[in-house]
Amino acid sequence: MEVYLIIIARTGLLYFLIIFIFRMMGKREIGELSILDLVVFIMIAELAVTAIEDPKAPLLNSVISMLFLLVIQYILAKLSLKSEKVRQLIDGKPTIIINRGKIDEKAMKSQRYNFDDLMTQLREKDVRSVSDVEFAILETSGKLNVFKKEEGKPMQPLELALIIDGEIQPGHLEKTGKTELWLRQELRRLGYPEVQHISFCSFSNGELYVDLSNV
């Protein structure tokens, strides 16, 4: 009987501890969890199961390990907010699979993403044919976002981030056909001489959108 009481007590304690940890990790949909989130979730689940299955094992060991995982996740999450390089290292970056109606096989290969995956996710978006797609972007969560063509309207270029967290994105600049010199000149003309003070800047329909950092 005593063993069962210990199991119940441990289960209740770990239940509230896990809720606390997940609340501290922030709010995300299950389908939008990063690799870091998934690793932490799996390890916490394993620690909790081990602590419940073996009533003789010191509970403090599991609690310390779970809290340490929370600290690691919290620190890396803070770093990823401040640094795009850390964010890309942990989460990767979105990949354009279909660009203006053309499938990018090289991008698919780099993500180990095949045509069966593409067609399956297109069907889930109620898209019957690749020819109906203007853009398809594979997000870091593995979700495919699809932008359908609009009949009677010319294809519009995809809005690309030229500056993120004060850092210019050379790859995106190249895709827009612009140069870093052009970007800096345009920003100065608009009254933004310091790139490092810009948290986000994108280019769409011939215009720049600029958002200054308030951190």
Score class of each variant (00 low, 15 high):
residue 100 R to H: 13
residue 164 I to M: 08
residue 118 L to R: 03
residue 176 T to K: 15
residue 195 V to T: 10
residue 211 D to S: 09
residue 175 K to I: 00
residue 33 L to S: 06
residue 83 S to F: 04
residue 173 L to Y: 09
residue 14 L to Q: 05
residue 86 V to H: 03
residue 214 N to E: 11
residue 51 A to S: 12
residue 197 H to C: 03
residue 165 D to L: 14
residue 30 I to P: 06
residue 158 L to E: 03
residue 51 A to P: 00
residue 130 V to K: 09
residue 29 E to V: 01
residue 3 V to M: 14
residue 7 I to Y: 01
residue 51 A to T: 04
residue 22 F to H: 04
residue 98 I to G: 02
residue 131 S to G: 05
residue 37 D to F: 04
residue 3 V to Y: 14
residue 136 A to Q: 04
residue 169 Q to T: 07
residue 11 T to H: 02
residue 111 Q to E: 15
residue 142 G to Q: 04
residue 93 K to H: 15
residue 109 K to Y: 12
residue 5 L to R: 14
residue 112 R to F: 12
residue 181 L to Y: 08
residue 64 I to H: 08
residue 71 V to T: 13
residue 98 I to C: 07
residue 71 V to A: 11
residue 16 F to Y: 14
residue 162 L to A: 00
residue 12 G to A: 06
residue 76 L to S: 06
residue 174 E to A: 12
residue 168 I to W: 05
residue 65 S to K: 04
residue 120 T to M: 14
residue 196 Q to L: 13
residue 108 M to Y: 10
residue 189 R to S: 10
residue 153 K to Y: 10
residue 192 Y to N: 05
residue 147 F to E: 01
residue 155 M to K: 11
residue 36 L to T: 08
residue 91 D to A: 11
residue 3 V to P: 03
residue 171 G to Y: 05
residue 146 V to T: 05
residue 6 I to C: 03
residue 163 I to L: 08
residue 33 L to C: 11
residue 82 K to S: 14
residue 11 T to S: 15
residue 76 L to K: 01
residue 33 L to V: 08
residue 106 K to H: 11
residue 21 I to G: 05
residue 189 R to F: 08
residue 159 E to P: 03
residue 206 G to M: 06
residue 118 L to K: 07
residue 80 S to R: 12
residue 197 H to A: 15
residue 14 L to T: 01
residue 144 L to E: 02
residue 203 F to R: 04
residue 210 V to H: 06
residue 100 R to W: 00
residue 129 S to P: 07
residue 212 L to G: 04
residue 84 E to W: 06
residue 193 P to D: 07
residue 214 N to S: 11
residue 1 M to K: 12
residue 6 I to Q: 15
residue 121 Q to L: 13
residue 187 L to W: 04
residue 53 E to I: 07
residue 14 L to N: 03
residue 78 K to E: 14
residue 92 G to K: 10
residue 131 S to Y: 08
residue 184 R to A: 00
residue 12 G to N: 07
residue 88 Q to R: 14
residue 175 K to R: 14
residue 137 I to F: 08
residue 16 F to K: 02
residue 205 N to R: 14
residue 71 V to R: 03
residue 58 P to H: 11
residue 213 S to N: 15
residue 146 V to F: 06
residue 22 F to W: 07
residue 78 K to H: 08
residue 62 S to G: 11
residue 3 V to K: 15
residue 161 A to P: 01
residue 139 E to R: 09
residue 79 L to P: 01
residue 135 F to D: 01
residue 8 I to R: 06
residue 120 T to I: 14
residue 203 F to I: 01
residue 101 G to M: 03
residue 17 L to Y: 06
residue 131 S to T: 09
residue 4 Y to R: 09
residue 174 E to S: 15
residue 151 E to Y: 08
residue 101 G to R: 02
residue 11 T to K: 07
residue 181 L to R: 13
residue 126 D to R: 14
residue 10 R to S: 02
residue 147 F to K: 00
residue 107 A to F: 12
residue 75 I to H: 08
residue 89 L to S: 11
residue 150 E to L: 10
residue 48 A to H: 00
residue 48 A to W: 00
residue 172 H to G: 01
residue 71 V to D: 05
residue 187 L to F: 09
